[in-house]
């Protein structure tokens, strides 16, 4: 249902004129829910922000990498440092970004344009998509007057739903990226960097797919019946992988 809604909204907007990358984003068809995992192009993205509140957070740096044919392709990996409008403050040290690095960064509108360009015709993947997606929606509204109209996969939400489906849900069980990776026997990454996190999230997704029926059987699908756990802005589309993930 929500996929249809997303498609409809995008189609309506095609009659209006937007600036280049956003215009392309609307014109490129989004993958249908029946698209198999192997055929979908998925952009794993991570944003380092100045705050945890989407309504006032700003981007500090963004990293992304693509999953194509079920594999994480390093040739598509990229990252940008954003020159913030205000003071970086304390969060810069958390992210290991020095003032000089931040000063040499790009204008946030430029970076947003790049993100939109990469997302055209693809699916967005974020671990714990809420904050990042809300932030991107807000920035898109500021520039284009519309939220970021792309399908989203959230590895945290997928794992949460999988555990619920198994009645395994334990409030103590951590859904943090590092802990989930450990659960799927993925190596520990020490670097704290948006690109490393994007790669880490991409690896987590292909591991989850392998453990839930395999890449050949997995499909994208909007799952309106159990989307409750995906706490994101009202415009975001909770895309998930099919029953293999939920039913097992």
């Amino acid at each position: 249902m929500k996929h249809r809604w997303l498609t409809l909204r995008r189609r309506l907007l095609r009659n209006r004129h937007f600036e280049a990358p956003f215009d392309t984003l609307l014109r490129e068809d989004i993958p249908s829910p029946r698209t198999s995992f192997m055929d979908a192009e998925i952009v794993s993205l991570d944003i380092e922000t100045t705050a945890l509140d989407a309504s006032r957070a700003e981007m500090l740096s963004v990293g992304w990498v693509l999953i194509r044919k079920g594999m994480v392709e390093m040739s598509t990996a990229d990252s940008c440092v954003v020159r913030p409008s205000g003071d970086v403050g304390g969060s810069a040290s958390v992210h290991g970004l020095t003032d000089t690095m931040v000063e040499s960064g790009d204008d946030w509108k430029l970076v947003l344009g790049e993100i939109i360009e990469v997302l055209a015709g693809r699916v967005l993947l974020v671990h714990h998509a809420g904050l990042d997606k809300a932030l991107l929606d807000r920035l898109c509204r500021r520039v284009y007057g519309q939220p970021l109209l792309v399908p989203v996969i959230d590895t945290l939400a997928l794992e949460h739903r999988r555990l619920q489906g198994r009645h395994h849900i334990d409030e103590q069980q951590s859904l943090r990226l590092a802990d989930l990776r450990q659960r799927y026997s993925l190596p520990r990454y020490d670097a704290h960097d948006c690109l490393v996190d994007a790669i880490a999230t991409a690896e987590l997704l292909i591991a989850m797919v392998a453990h839930n029926g395999g890449a050949d059987r997995a499909r994208l699908s909007s799952n309106s019946t159990s989307s409750a756990e995906i706490t994101v802005a009202e415009t975001s589309m909770p895309f998930a992988l099919t029953s293999e993930l939920t039913a097992s």
Binding site: M71, E73, M74, A77, L186, I206, G214
Partner: peptide, 14 residues
Amino acid sequence: CARAIRIAYYRKGE
């Protein structure tokens, strides 16, 4: 080389 890497994940037994 790092740029050319593609990462695959195989489940035990695959």
